[in-house]
Each structure stands twice: as structure tokens, then as C-alpha cells.
Design a binder for these strands. Structure first.
Lengths: 269, 269
DNA sequence: TCACTTATAGTCACATTGACTATAAGTGAT
DNA sequence: ATCACTTATAGTCAATGTGACTATAAGTGA
């Protein structure tokens, strides 16, 4: 049906898997810039037994790619990102396992907060800073490198950043997130000016005091003028709505609102 | 075989296909802006018998995704793009055919010149302007829309454009290509200034006369300072080298050098 | 009230860019 | 030769965006 016999099927049907790279904002260790952290799972079978690997699993029938990635991620790490975007599909012949070619459709996500308690009990999940990763199984290191590269280059800051900050935030907080994402220091004053001028934000009217100093005005992203530029890497309206539906159906999914305030806490297990 | 009885294997292994969206610079019809044209193939079997569709086929065992896309494209359209980049992977449940989920890994490419003669004999391949496409089979219309969207938004002009112009070109030619890619008129004088200032180009020293007027200086892209910015959507060094290897092994692959001069010719079959 | 820290405003020089205008250089026709 | 015409290429001007700083304001605990 459909494909027909291409010379009696010498074409080994490839195995198809989904893999996720999740980024979270790390702690503000000392006075340093924050880093991005990402969760890895320890492999419990060969090959690469005991090695760290990206969370993933086989594509599940009847689900969209995105949903499949979401479910796999949730089952292995208890994470429920509010954002999931296709990154790249890997399928070199060398990726074959046991002779069967392996195609991995990779997704990535950004989460602001990590519910440490929920993943703590499992010893096979841990978080690592993006610049201090262990050896990874398969070609996962390359996948991570690519994800980071793309995060820093081919992405509109706003769309990403709003996933890392909470619903409401001070400019300094937004600034910290931006620095983490971009991986470089950014002049605060200029950041202020640029960001405010962009018109993406609106004041909530409230203020928040972080230390014991002058409290800062709280902002939120404007609901309208939402996509002043981009639309993301997802085809507009393709799987676009899917994630929100998933998120709505998943209790834990929304609890990363107000994320940043909680991020002062160490996320390491 | 393969598909088997549904109840036995409810984890229906998905079928995996590769699909390509190819863009070529269309003719300068009248005085209008040039358009991008793309090749479609007429389906020769159900479903969507006789409808136009993007060139594609099943993922071939032992090949990389990119190579598979390249070969499929070549066999259905005789096109040999010098550029092939992963676009997106589609795999919604609705894409299933005959109950078997269908995952399509889409690639896209830009070719400057089309060897009309080589595709002419086949009546099941034709070129269409990006703003005058026929009804497409499956969800291919969405794929095309996404490809165009991404071409115009998430891409660094230089990298794309250098695939559409020849090895050597006048600023006016480069300007025409840019207009086609961006899909909007661009002030020539400013385009000049910007482009020259960018340092991407270098003069060849020669000049070329297009009409009967003053000849224009010829430029080429500088070999060094090659990637002053990006690197493309491909993970650096992943499949990156692959295409060149393919291209080298394929005679017709390089003949789109000097492409633009030939583009005054109508590409329609 | 003071010392201290952070929020927020403002300055300045400089680069980029859109919208035009002006001049230079070739060509075929007269 | 010269002219009319078309395109190549250079410049002008105002508006805007931005990096690197500096200055002032607003809270706080002591």
C-alpha cells in the first residue's frame, strides 16, 4: 500500500526516534553570568550503558512528532516545558544501530524553572551546565552543540527569553536571562533602552524588591504585538497550536510562571 | 511485510520520506521584479493521481538524509542543486497514508540555472512561479509556504544569494536576485552601498555589458571572510561536507556557475 | 541621617539606512 | 562628431539604533 515494492523491499525501514534538548537558566552562582543548564539521563542499557544521554525515545504511533517528544521527555525526566520546537533531524548512515538506520528528530525547549523535587528521586537524571557537560552517548554531544549554536545565532531573543522569565519580571531579571542565552555580558543600560524602545514590554504597574535596595518596576510581554518579527522556526499554524493544547492538559506545565524568582535556587540535584 | 498486522504491532513503524523544495530564479518577464520558481512533479499514482507535488521519495537505506534527498530529487527532476539544506520534518498523525504514519524530512535548495533541456522531455515535471502555484497534493502547499517564509525570514541573504548568482556578477544582477529572494523591491543605490560596505564582495577587475549601456563592474564573493556571520541551519560540520562530495561526483552539479547570465532565458518548460 | 546599592535617565560619538539627487560612462542613431 | 538615452556609480540628508559611559533618583538597614 502506497510505497509499492521497490525491488522487494531491500530498504530496511529506519527506526525513528525523538530526542530533546532542554535548557534551563542556572543559578547565579557568585557574581558571574548565569549559565544555561540542561538535563541528561543515564542510559540503562547497551549501547553506552551508564553514559549520559539526551532524553528521548521512539516516535510513538498516533502522535505528532512534537507530542511524541513531549511525552517521551515527560516520562524520562518529569519535565513539562511550555515550549517545544523542532531543532533538526539527524539520519546519517553511521547513526544506524544494529544495522538498522536510526533517524532522530530532535526538539528543544526552554524552561525557566525546574521542579527539583520531582526529578530528585531518580538517580538517572541530572542537570549540567552547558559549558561543563560530561561525555555523551551516541552523537548527542553534536546535537547539544548544535542546539546551543542555534540558540545563540538563529533565534530571536524575545521569543526564547519569554520562556525563561516568568510572566512578570524586572528589567534586571530579563537582562540576566538575556545574558545567559546570548552567553555574553550585555550593558545593562543599553539593554534597558533597547528593550523598552522595542515596545515588546508593558509595565504592570507593580514593583518588586529583590535585595534591600530600590525596587524595580515589573514588566510583562505585551499580549498583542506578540510576534513583531518572527514566528519561530515552526511553520505558522502547523504544530503551532499543539503544544498549548498539551500544556493545558498537563498540570505541571504552567508552573514555571514566575520562574525567575525561583531560580536563585540551585537547580542541581 | 513491514507494515504487518496492526494489532500485532501497534507501534506501526512510520514510513520515512524525503521531500525537496527547489527554488530557481525566474525570468525577468517584463520590467517586473523577478520571481522565484520551483519545480513540481505530477503524481503518477493514487492518492492525488495527476496532482502536482513536490519531488520526493522514500528514505533510502545506507544514505544520509541529505544524500537521499539529493538522489530522489535527481531521479525525479534531473536537478542537481549545489546546495541542500534541511528545512523541517513533518510528521503529524494526519499525514498517515493507509493508516501508516508518514514522516517527511524536507530539504530545500536554491539553483541559479535550470537545464531546461534535460527536464523538457518529461511531461511530469514543470516549473511554477512562487506566487502562481497549482493545487498541490498532500500537505505540500504548507511545506512550500513554510519554505518561502523561511527563505525570506530566517536566512542570511548572502549565503542564499550566492547560490543564485553565478561565480561572477554585476551589482545589478545581485540586486535582482536579492529582490527575488526577499520578494520586495529594494532601492538599488542603497543596496549598492550596503553590499559594498559589507566587505563580502571583491571586484574581479573585469566588466560586463548587459544591454547597450555602460558596462558594470564584475564582482565575486570573497573566498575568505566567507562566513562573516552565520553558518546556515546545518550543524557546522555535520552533513556539511557531504553535499560537496556529492556535487563533485556529479557532473551536472557544477554547471550552474555563471548561472545568472543564462537566467534571462525563460525557465518554463 | 548616612552609607550603600540598585533603578533609571541622559549624553555623545558613530554607524547604518531609507529616500533621493547628481554625475559619469557607454551605445546606437543621426 | 554629436546627441539622446540608459545604466553605473557617487553623494547628500535626515532619522534611527547602539555601544560606552556618566549622572541622578530611590529605597534600605544601620
Amino acid at each position: 500500500m502506497g510505497i509499492g515494492n521497490v525491488s522487494e523491499r531491500r530498504d530496511e525501514a529506519p527506526r525513528v526516534g525523538v530526542t530533546s534538548v532542554i535548557f534551563a537558566l542556572g543559578p547565579a552562582d557568585d557574581g558571574e553570568r548565569r549559565r544555561l543548564w540542561l538535563p541528561l539521563v543515564r542510559r540503562v542499557r547497551e549501547p553506552f550503558l551508564d553514559a549520559w544521554a539526551l532524553p528521548g525515545g521512539p516516535l510513538k504511533a498516533g502522535r505528532s512528532l512534537e507530542r511524541s517528544a513531549y511525552e517521551t521527555l515527560a516520562s524520562t525526566t518529569d519535565l513539562h516545558p511550555g515550549y517545544l520546537e523542532q531543532l533538526y533531524t539527524f539520519g546519517d548512515p553511521e547513526r544506524s544501530r544494529g544495522g538498522v538506520p536510526m533517524v532522530s528528530i530532535c526538539y528543544w525547549a526552554l524552561v525557566g524553572q525546574v521542579d527539583v523535587s520531582s526529578i530528585e528521586p531518580r538517580h538517572n537524571v541530572a542537570w549540567f551546565a552547558d559549558d561543563a557537560l560530561p561525555e555523551l552517548a551516541f552523537d548527542h554531544r553534536r546535537i547539544v552543540d548544535y542546539a546551543i549554536w542555534r540558540l545563540r545565532h538563529r533565534l530571536d531573543m524575545p521569543k526564547v527569553v519569554r520562556e525563561l522569565v516568568g510572566a512578570t519580571f524586572t528589567l534586571r531579571e530579563l537582562h540576566a536571562v538575556s545574558e545567559a542565552v546570548e552567553g555574553r555580558p550585555i550593558d545593562l543600560a543599553n539593554f534597558r533602552r533597547r528593550t523598552l524602545a522595542s515596545g515588546m514590554l508593558e509595565e504592570t504597574g507593580e514593583r518588586r524588591r529583590v535585595g534591600r535596595q530600590r525596587p524595580a518596576a515589573l514588566y510583562r510581554f505585551r499580549a498583542d504585538a506578540d510576534a513583531p518579527a518572527d514566528g519561530g522556526a515552526l511553520p505558522q499554524g502547523f504544530d503551532a497550536g499543539e503544544l498549548s493544547r498539551i500544556a493545558d492538559a498537563t498540570p505541571a506545565a504552567h508552573e514555571h510562571a514566575g520562574a525567575l524568582s525561583a531560580l536563585t535556587t540551585d537547580v542541581r540535584p
